[in-house]
């Protein structure tokens, strides 16, 4: 064991750093999914596609800015702009013209509708960005790397993945918690989540809250994608992986648990990275094994509260 650790310590360290960065991205998507479900009572199967579209948009904008001779800092602006654009354009479009038609319908119908949307958005990506890998890693390379001390060795790791990604994830977590607890709009969202009828009776415009929440959730997913875009080349299929992974996080943490989703993201991110370095065939499997194991023991998720059954 000790010998193995000595031999593989560096790899394990690298896996831990990778896992942290990955967890930050997964959290951004999962938290949006959670938020939207809380208010709209719909789990949006197309949520992962918004992540993918955010990523592609950010890469395209970044490449465009670079081709215009703008300074590298503009690359970061591209990330934020992409998230804002996707959120502000697609969010209201989807909510207003699709989801609003199916609120309160049977769940199977809601599932089918968002699944259909998912099919559509997956191909929108292919039509707009093609099937060739797209990559724009300037925001990551610009910051350079840092030597992370690890035992007697050091691991060179990008500052972007070590600081920017986890930093933004933490900021999102804290910011969202403060927003929901301290601001009027946030408290309205909490009220609608807890009891839509009662909130409406108190004069809250639930329709507007739902629109805003969905837009915010879409923007969070797109921001996750935008932040991920410098770290990888984008290929079709990202959306499907993202939705199942972020759903796995939400299910494992328990629906509606934001802090829990953060911890679960970390757990799954680390688990996945360890698999990437030590058993790459099982990279995709690990998060789901964690999910299945958790759900077998706690069907309501790690942090979920069991809903009392109404008889």
């Amino acid at each position: 064991m000790v010998g193995w650790l000595q031999d593989n310590g560096l790899l394990l360290g690298l896996a831990a750093l990778d896992g942290l960065a990955y967890a930050a991205l997964v959290f951004m998507v999962a938290v949006g999914l959670n938020l939207v479900f809380g208010v709209l009572r719909i789990v949006n199967v197309a949520h992962g596609s918004l992540f993918a579209i955010g990523a592609y948009t950010a890469a395209s904008l970044g490449l465009f800015f670079a081709s215009q001779g703008l300074p590298p800092l503009a690359g970061y602006f591209a990330l934020v702009l992409a998230a804002a654009l996707v959120g502000a354009l697609l969010g209201p479009l989807i909510e207003r013209f699709l989801l609003r038609r199916i609120y309160g319908h049977e769940e199977v119908l809601q599932l089918l509708v968002t699944f259909a949307l998912f099919m559509i958005l997956e191909d929108v990506q292919k039509l707009v960005w093609g099937v060739q890998p797209v990559s724009q890693d300037l925001p990551m390379t610009y910051l350079g790397t840092i030597d992370v001390p690890f035992g007697d060795d050091v691991i060179p790791f990008t500052k972007y993945q070590l600081f920017v990604l986890p930093g933004i994830a933490v900021a999102t977590l804290v910011g969202l918690a403060l927003f929901l607890r301290r601001t009027l709009a946030g408290r309205m969202i909490v009220a609608v989540t807890a009891d839509k009828e009662a909130a409406t009776a108190m004069g809250i415009d639930a329709t507007r809250i739902m629109l805003l929440t969905f837009t915010a959730g879409a923007a969070l997913a797109a921001l996750g994608g935008a932040l991920a875009s410098p770290t990888t080349s984008l290929v079709p299929g990202v959306g499907a992986q993202t939705i199942v992974l972020s759903f796995a996080v939400v299910a494992t943490a328990g629906l509606g648990q934001i802090e829990g989703a953060a911890l679960t993201s970390l757990m799954m991110g680390l688990g996945r990275s360890v698999a990437v370095y030590f058993a790459p065939e099982f990279e995709v499997v690990v998060p789901y094994l964690i999910m299945v194991a958790v759900l077998l023991v706690r069907p309501q998720g790690l942090f979920g509260v069991l809903e009392t059954r109404r008889v």
Binding site: V43, V45, E107, V108, L111, F115, A240, Q241, V244, F247, A248, A251, P280, E281, F282, E283, V284, V285, Y288, M291, V292, L295, L296, P299
Partner: peptide
């Protein structure tokens, strides 16, 4: 035995997740 404990979105998505696992194994092994 696992998925029939769940309904609706959980049922749909757990099936999707498990199928993704099988797919990735077919692809990677």
């Amino acid at each position: 035995l696992f998925v029939v404990r769940y309904r609706d979105i959980f049922f749909g998505m757990l099936n999707l997740a498990i199928s993704m696992v099988l797919y990735s194994l077919l692809e990677k092994l």
